[in-house]
Design a protein around this nucleic acid. Structure first.
Lengths: 236, 236
DNA sequence: TAAAAACAATTTGTATTCAATTATTTTTTT
DNA sequence: AAAAAAATAATTGAATACAAATTGTTTTTA
């Protein structure tokens, strides 16, 4: 296996991307050029190219004369996320049902089985990365250069938000993950059958489930209260 | 006025962006690093930064070891464009009506009056740039970091497609431009009033008009045939 | 002692140099 | 003369060197 500059560059890109998606690098964290350059055996020139690419894709933000930071996840960002996500996800699922080819469907199935494995024995990172890849493939199936940039940005933040609840805290959350996996299977069927309406509807269901999961994490007390139960032991 | 590297870099960015939007640089055209670097008094390092940024935004495409080209406008691209544009435009207009602030509305009005001036005495470039800026501001009003990348990509290609028909070829096309300007005015009113449904509906109308204009250019004969009239003198 | 200024160190941005890849021309061979 | 191969030129990518800006620390002064 070769280890030229091109390969090291790709490895840097993949590593940063992964670390950001899994919250190993948290929103707002500084990114040090010199340290990274040394760590990956690159000079600062190609390193900065990677940083600029990641900035263009929404993973990090580059400030004038003040280096790079992992992209923020502010309150406003979350609000935008909740407003935009269901719309884009539904549109992408619909287009995917229309345009998917056999190769892509195979890859989607492989990724879904990886997601299932991660649900059983994997880490929170594994789950999130497999889930993100699953939805990214659906984006590729949709085959729209116009929608893809929006989907990618949604997936970045969905992944980061998801990292905080993919390690289930109670029975309901664990059940939700199982349900999510089921919906993935159904979505695959719809796409394979070319049923655009069903795919779009499922995407909305899938979103609602994810939204519930997020809300359950953000406000566990109010949820428990609403359920009329005392705060359970494993929610502490 | 200062003329440091930072300024020259911004000028390069603006010039390339403008040239691409106005088709002064056509899809697929090569971009020569050395020539540009000399022309703008920059070394290749910051120049390449600009090229990478433009690539991230969809203006150009950077191929491995083979330089940059103005982003293509293929048949497939056009198909994607027609599928995606109405959805995004409607969503953006709706969000703009919900979120626009006074400063942005002022800027939108100023840009609209620039558009009107361009319709009277301006060049096709002026019209296209003012129109593109108009819709970009609506995107800023919508205030969604998730939708903006998609909108920007749509506007790039809408601008480039528009450049081919903003110099009206017949009476119908000229009338359409006047109608488009009217719709801009109405859209401003809706946004100012915070009427999201009306804004979304108008965005769809506006899209339909634009689509008709494009079709009129792409297939002038078939249109004339459909209208049951002989091909007019000024369509030759 | 606290604020301000000066200085030093670190970090970021740009230019130049060097290396590798791709494109073009010239030469050779069939 | 046409095709293949080799040599050369041009272009792109990476590393180093240099310049500018920011940040942190020390020193000075009120």
């Amino acid at each position: 296996m070769r280890n030229d500059a091109k390969t090291r560059k790709k490895k840097l890109y993949d590593a940063l991307r992964r670390d950001i998606l899994t919250m190993d690098r948290v929103p707002g964290a500084d990114i040090d050029e010199v340290t990274l350059a040394e760590a990956f055996g690159l000079s600062r020139t190609p390193l900065r190219e990677v940083l600029q690419q990641l900035a263009g894709e929404g993973y990090i933000s580059n400030r004038e004369n003040r280096g790079s930071r992992v992209a923020d996840l502010s309150h406003q960002t979350l609000r935008d996320f909740f407003l935009t996500a269901p719309m884009i996800y539904a549109a992408v699922a619909r287009l995917a049902a229309l345009n998917a080819n056999a190769l892509q469907i195979d890859e989607l199935k492989r990724t879904q089985s990886e997601f299932k494995s991660a649900l059983k024995g994997g880490s929170a990172q594994d789950r999130t990365l497999a889930n993100t890849r699953f939805h990214e493939i659906i984006g590729e199936m949709a085959h729209s250069i116009y929608l893809m940039p929006s989907l990618q940005r949604l997936l970045i933040d969905h992944s980061r938000i998801g990292m905080t609840f993919n390690r289930p805290r109670n029975d309901k959350m664990a059940a939700n993950l199982a349900m999510a996996s089921q919906q993935h299977d159904q979505l695959i069927d719809c796409i394979e059958a070319g049923d655009e309406d069903a795919a779009a509807a499922l995407a909305v269901d899938h979103w609602n489930l994810s939204r519930d999961q997020i809300e359950m994490f953000v406000m566990p007390q109010s949820l428990d209260t609403h359920m009329g139960a005392a705060i359970t032991a494993n929610s502490a």
